[in-house]
């Protein structure tokens, strides 16, 4: 058989391959890119960080909340669990929020009560609880490649990006779908659009201000723009990111009254 004919046959064989195999190979690649992007957004070691959530309406600052976050992955789920302590404003100082998948608790040291809250119950104005906790997308979403395109990044500069189309793949997923743009070269997250079941845009997020923390250049600021009302903007800024030995036993309701943190 001459080389040319062999090549034709290979092409025909490739065409004859069932479509799902091709799709599967592509999905694995997109999933790996998503995992690589997660590894840039989130340290792999347990860590603490200061989180400042600033809310704007029509360009005017209307609220600000400072929290200390303690996060780590749990072995059984592979997902991050996050414990947040409110530091500012003073009336909320010492209050805690625990998020471990759909397991959400709010603890008030004044009343000593631990109250289970639903994902819809927001504790900080327009910012959803999911906006301020650490989440690995690769664990809760299935990614498909959406091709390369140029997007404007958080610094308002054009960037060559790969678009990933994320579909909810677990009950813990907050959104039905996410469109995520990551840097075509180094997989840094650039921008995400979070979509409801209906396809409606819920919010747009820009990841920016990359700084070296715990062994990688990581985004330290997320700008979140409300999908329905773009005049509502939330800035989530991370600072003082440091590795911490955080026992897994901290991430449960019964530990909350004991929690002190740094």
């Amino acid at each position: 058989m001459n080389p040319s004919r062999r090549s034709h046959l290979r092409s025909l064989a490739a065409l004859a391959l069932p479509w799902p195999r091709h799709a599967r190979a592509q999905a694995v690649d997109a999933q790996a890119l998503l995992a690589a992007s997660d590894a840039i957004r989130n340290p792999t070691r347990p860590f603490r960080a200061t989180v400042t959530v600033t809310e704007f309406e029509k360009g005017r600052q209307v609220d600000s909340t400072t929290l200390t976050s303690y996060a780590r992955t749990l072995e059984d789920s592979g997902q991050f669990a996050t414990l947040l302590r409110f530091d500012e404003p003073a009336r909320d100082a010492g209050k805690l929020m625990l998020k471990n998948g759909k397991d959400l608790w709010f603890f008030d040291p004044g009343t000593k009560s631990s109250v289970r809250i639903s994902p819809q119950q927001r504790l900080m104005g327009e910012a959803s609880n999911g906006d301020v906790v650490t989440v690995n997308f690769a664990r809760d979403y299935k990614a498909e490649d959406g091709g390369e395109e140029t997007v404007s990044d958080g610094e308002r500069k054009p960037r060559q990006a790969r678009k990933l189309l994320l579909a909810a793949a677990s009950d813990d997923a907050t959104y039905a779908a996410i469109e995520l743009w990551i840097d075509a070269g180094d997989q840094r997250p650039i921008k995400a659009r979070f979509l409801a079941d209906s396809g409606r845009l819920l919010k747009t997020a820009y990841y920016r201000r990359f700084q070296p923390h715990l062994g990688a250049q990581r985004p330290t600021e997320t700008v979140i723009i409300d999908g329905l009302n773009p005049q509502q903007v939330t800035l989530v800024r991370l600072a003082d990111i440091a590795a911490r030995n955080i026992p897994v036993t901290w991430f449960q309701r019964d530990y909350l009254p004991r929690f002190q943190g740094d």
Binding site: F56, S64, R156, R193, T204, Y206, I225, G227, A242
Partner: peptide, 28 residues
């Protein structure tokens, strides 16, 4: 809102908090 940042996104990306976070972790 999709693709390149629109005008409203640009406005949002220009916002800055009134007070800068203090250097170093806030002590509890």
């Amino acid at each position: 809102a999709a693709g390149p940042a629109g005008a409203s996104d640009d406005d949002a990306l220009a916002l800055e908090p009134e007070a800068q976070a203090p250097a170093g972790p806030a002590a509890r």
